[in-house]
């Protein structure tokens, strides 16, 4: 591989990693925007998406590489079901663990969130065991680089990369449109701006919060399934790691800000890939969290800011 090819390959790596991080980061940022809570259990909802979709696939007997028509019905149907399940689990977590503490000091729900995270991790650990879990290789992998860049290219850009983009990017666009143009989206924005005033205007706050958890959970579940299909591997603790990075992405982008979370996700993706290549893998985590600290010190409102009047 030439130096340019290596750089290009790392950009592809960064873009793919950034795509699923951004999808997870959206859940953090939305919940924070609405109730000011850093939902530590959110990363585990992403891991749950991995396990739920894996179970659905094995239950449906879809375990080998799919072709043509199967791809069109199997993946979307499993994904929708997974999103529904993880969305509802996220709503239940809120209903059981956070809602009773809605008016408690901020530290209380934060600690509860850490507790909820442990509960979810232990459920998944007992369900699929503590080891790495293999995810069925259901999506065909064809390297498109020779066709795009000529046969001598050593770049790897496969149909799986395309699949990852084809799922994550439309979901992000759909969320943005939903929040901008629907009635419930409008009430979400109103609640984020000023919860009490929104309530006085007749907005059902609890319903808005429920919707937020439902959408955030569904997006994380989709990310879990996409990562499963993409990497073919996972583990009950995968949500902890991805969650920390996605949380960083949300803060860097400006917590509470939807385009900011997406931008932050991609930024972290690129930064990790380039740091792995040009610094050292041992420094990558330090680089990412140094970025977090720098932002917290010098620009606590993130790249795009919290955008108080137009939070979403």
């Amino acid at each position: 591989m030439t130096a340019q090819e290596v750089f290009l390959q790392q950009l592809i790596n960064g873009f793919t990693t950034g795509s699923y991080l951004a999808l997870i980061a959206l859940g953090y940022t939305m919940v924070y925007g609405i109730i000011g809570l850093i939902n530590f259990a959110h990363g585990d909802i992403y891991a749950l998406g991995f396990f739920v979709s894996l179970s659905l696939l094995s239950w449906m007997g879809v375990t080998s590489t799919l072709t043509g028509g199967q791809l069109v019905w199997a993946i979307p149907s499993v994904m929708l079901l997974t999103m529904l399940v993880t969305g509802l689990v996220n709503v239940s977590v809120d209903r059981i663990a956070y809602r009773p503490l809605r008016h408690a000091p901020r530290l209380a729900p934060l600690i509860t969130a850490i507790g909820a995270s442990f509960v979810l991790e232990n459920i998944m650990q007992n369900w699929y065991g503590p080891s790495q879990v293999y995810y069925y290789n259901i999506f065909p992998t064809i390297n498109l680089a020779p066709a795009l860049l000529g046969p001598q290219s050593e770049i790897l850009f496969t149909t799986k990369d395309i699949f990852l983009f084809a799922v994550t990017i439309p979901l992000m666009v759909a969320l943005t449109l939903f929040v901008k143009h629907t009635k419930i989206g409008k009430s979400m924005r109103a609640t984020a701006q000023d919860r009490e005033a929104a309530q006085m205007m007749g907005i059902n706050i609890e319903r808005v919060i429920m919707t937020t958890f439902l959408i955030g959970g569904a997006l994380a579940g989709a990310a879990g399934m996409v990562v499963g299909i993409y990497l073919n591997t996972g583990r009950y603790l995968m949500g902890f790691d991805a969650g920390l990075q996605a949380f960083t992405a949300a803060v860097v982008g400006g917590i509470g800000n939807i385009p900011g979370a997406v931008l932050g996700g991609y930024l972290i993706g690129f930064l990790s890939a380039l740091s792995d290549q040009y610094l050292s893998a041992a420094w990558t985590r330090a680089t990412v969290f140094a970025l977090l600290i720098l932002f917290l010190i010098f620009r606590p409102s993130g790249i795009l800011g919290e955008q108080i009047p137009e939070k979403f």
Binding site: Q10, N13, G14, T16, T17, Q132, V227, L231, T233, G234, R235, L237, M238, F240, D241, S272, A273, D276, Q277, S280, A281, A282, T284, R285
Partner: peptide
């Protein structure tokens, strides 16, 4: 190189 033992994505 040393890797992060909890990570699952080592493509970069």
């Amino acid at each position: 190189e040393g890797v992060e033992s909890t990570a699952i994505d080592f493509r970069a």
